[in-house]
Amino acid sequence: MAAPSKVAAALKAPDRAIRTEIMADVMRRHEASDGACTFAQIAAAGFSEAEIEAYRDDARGLACGRVEPVLTVPAGRVEGVALVREARAIRARQAEARV
């Protein structure tokens, strides 16, 4: 089992969508030839244990054509990051005014 911090990092990786699609392709390829895809086959394709834990459910959905996983930034995150940036700028200006 991968460390929770590594799984969280894999879920936040900028290339998550690409890696999930690649994993789905690996699953399709092995399912067609062997009837099933194993953990070892995915690891042999270059995925770490944390990536396998983080991406496998979304990749299964893509491989079966069921649901398109949400691989974009959550709706409020961009706005939240902008607000944090603005708050830090305000605090910096206030700190400069005190000095």
Rank of each mutant, 00 (worst) to 15 (best):
G65E: 01
Q41P: 05
P74V: 10
A63I: 05
H30T: 02
I18A: 04
V7D: 00
A95K: 13
G65M: 09
I52T: 05
S5N: 14
M27H: 02
E86D: 10
K6F: 10
E51S: 03
G80C: 13
A3K: 12
T72G: 11
A3W: 04
R98L: 15
A17P: 06
Q41L: 05
Q94H: 03
I42N: 01
A36G: 05
T20M: 02
G65D: 09
Q94N: 13
Y55I: 04
I22S: 07
A95H: 14
E53C: 01
A8Y: 09
R29S: 02
V7P: 05
R77D: 10
A13F: 00
V67F: 09
G80D: 15
K12G: 06
H30Q: 07
V99M: 12
V78E: 08
V81A: 15
T72H: 10
R91G: 01
T72V: 11
P69W: 06
R98V: 10
G61C: 11
Y55S: 02
I52Y: 04
A75Q: 15
G76D: 12
I18K: 04
G46W: 06
A89P: 02
M1G: 07
R85L: 07
S48D: 04
C37V: 07
I22N: 12
K12M: 09
R93F: 00
Q41I: 09
V78Q: 11
A89Y: 05
T38Y: 03
F47S: 01
R93Y: 01
A32G: 08
A32K: 15
A36M: 12
E68N: 04
R66K: 14
R98E: 13
R91P: 03
P69G: 04
E68H: 08
V81Q: 15
E79W: 04
A97R: 14
A82T: 13
R60W: 06
M23T: 06
E49R: 01
E31L: 12
C37P: 03
A10L: 06
M1S: 08
E86R: 14
R56M: 10
A17I: 04
A3N: 07
T38Q: 09
E31I: 13
F39N: 01
D25W: 09
V78K: 11
V81F: 14
R98A: 12
R66I: 06
G61F: 03
R88G: 00
R19T: 00
A97M: 14
L11A: 01
G80V: 13
P14V: 02
G46I: 07
A63P: 02
A59G: 05
L11F: 05
A63C: 08
L11D: 06
Q41G: 03
P69T: 05
A95T: 10
A87F: 02
I18Y: 08
S48N: 10
E51H: 02
P14E: 09
A75R: 14
A44H: 13
R88P: 00
D57E: 14
E51C: 05
T72M: 09
E51G: 02
E79Y: 10
P14I: 04
G46Q: 07
A44R: 12
V84R: 15
V26I: 15
S33C: 14
S48L: 03
L62I: 13
L11K: 07
G80A: 14
E31M: 15
D57R: 12
A43T: 08
G76P: 07
R85W: 12
H30V: 03
D58R: 00
I52Q: 03
